[in-house]
Simulated assay, not measured.
Amino acid sequence: MEIAKDKWKKPILELIGNSKEPVGSWYIVNNFKKNGIEVSSATVGRELNELETLGYVEKIGFKGRLITPLGKKIIEDANTTLELDYYKNSLESLLSSHVLENFIMVLEARSAIERQTARLAAERITDEELAELKRCYANQQMHSSDRQSIAKDDIAFHSCIAKASKNKALVSLYMMLSTMGQQSELFEQLRHRVGDNYRTYHLSILEAIEKHNPDQAEESMMDHLQKLTRDVNQYWNEYMRKRKDGDGV
């Protein structure tokens, strides 16, 4: 259940989580009141019952409720979601812009993140994750051969590497950058012009990770993203020339 933006569940769960002793509805009502928030005991009681049903809190006899390990994880995940939403919103104008400098900045950000995810993936990837990465690459090959869109395949390939890095912060940062459609649409247009080059780069990255060679994985990833940067520049120059000449794009 998503509680990050829930009016009552998240603050109630946090209050319980901050207490070492079981707490009841009146304790919660009084704490809210101290912060200028009015809420009835009946409302808090309903929320507590729901939190208990979800397994986020447990009842300790007549003393009240304590947070469970699952509840603590839910709070941690909710706070992470809120933080990522803040940075996602602050980056949204950057990522949805058609300005060349903005695309280049996004690629610079991806380079900083993905050179490290590639290194860590080469060191930490499991057999199951490697099999999934190979499936992502095979899907890209198949869809590209059929002249279908590979935008989702591209994101799946890179996100699989990010997840294999076992670094949640890097995974979250990559996903923030990858889920903006404008980027995928631009790169899709680039792919149609440069042919199979991106598949070749992905194969090089895959082979380096399969060999558990972090240096080669990082180098292959950087080669890939530098190629993207060059293509963005070339695409933009052509776009601006055609617009200036009134030829359309």
Score class of each variant (00 low, 15 high):
144 S>K: 06
123 E>L: 09
163 K>S: 05
62 F>L: 14
49 N>W: 12
108 E>C: 04
118 A>Q: 00
74 I>K: 12
100 L>E: 01
121 A>H: 01
181 G>H: 09
191 R>C: 04
26 W>Q: 14
39 V>S: 04
132 E>H: 01
249 V>F: 15
76 E>R: 08
79 N>M: 09
174 Y>T: 07
188 E>T: 10
179 T>G: 12
122 A>F: 01
110 R>M: 07
86 Y>W: 15
235 Y>P: 11
87 Y>E: 10
70 L>C: 14
50 E>M: 14
146 D>T: 05
79 N>H: 13
240 M>S: 15
1 M>T: 15
98 H>I: 02
245 D>G: 13
225 L>G: 00
74 I>E: 06
183 Q>Y: 07
82 L>T: 14
4 A>I: 06
185 E>C: 06
190 L>W: 08
24 G>T: 06
13 L>T: 01
76 E>F: 15
140 Q>E: 15
10 K>L: 13
186 L>A: 12
129 E>H: 07
73 K>E: 13
241 R>K: 14
140 Q>S: 06
40 S>K: 03
184 S>W: 06
48 L>G: 07
207 E>R: 00
80 T>S: 06
23 V>W: 05
115 R>L: 09
133 L>R: 01
237 N>G: 13
108 E>A: 04
22 P>L: 04
21 E>K: 12
152 K>N: 12
151 A>V: 05
142 M>F: 10
142 M>G: 09
214 P>R: 01
130 L>F: 05
230 R>T: 15
126 T>L: 06
236 W>N: 11
152 K>Y: 15
111 S>E: 11
218 E>C: 09
120 L>I: 03
126 T>G: 04
43 T>H: 03
141 Q>R: 05
205 I>Q: 01
17 G>P: 06
21 E>M: 13
23 V>T: 11
81 T>H: 14
244 K>G: 15
175 M>S: 10
47 E>S: 08
146 D>V: 03
139 N>V: 11
117 T>F: 01
50 E>R: 14
194 V>Y: 06
249 V>A: 14
33 K>R: 13
174 Y>R: 12
72 K>E: 13
131 A>V: 05
145 S>N: 14
49 N>C: 15
103 F>K: 03
147 R>E: 12
141 Q>W: 05
65 R>Y: 08
153 D>E: 11
38 E>Y: 09
31 N>K: 12
159 S>Y: 04
77 D>W: 08
223 D>G: 04
91 L>Y: 00
179 T>E: 13
178 S>C: 14
87 Y>H: 10
191 R>P: 02
35 N>G: 09
128 E>C: 10
245 D>V: 12
68 T>H: 03
22 P>W: 03
199 R>F: 06
7 K>G: 05
226 Q>A: 15
157 F>P: 00
194 V>F: 08
147 R>G: 02
72 K>Q: 13
234 Q>G: 10
157 F>Q: 00
145 S>K: 10
238 E>W: 12
81 T>W: 13
42 A>M: 12
119 R>N: 03
235 Y>I: 11
155 I>G: 09
143 H>Y: 08
192 H>S: 14
100 L>T: 00
34 K>M: 06
94 L>P: 00
226 Q>S: 11
18 N>H: 09
165 S>D: 04
78 A>D: 00
232 V>S: 07
36 G>K: 07
83 E>T: 05
60 I>W: 07
16 I>V: 03
187 F>N: 03
15 L>V: 05
99 V>I: 10
25 S>H: 08
137 Y>H: 02
39 V>I: 09
155 I>H: 04
116 Q>K: 04
128 E>T: 14
177 L>D: 02
43 T>S: 03
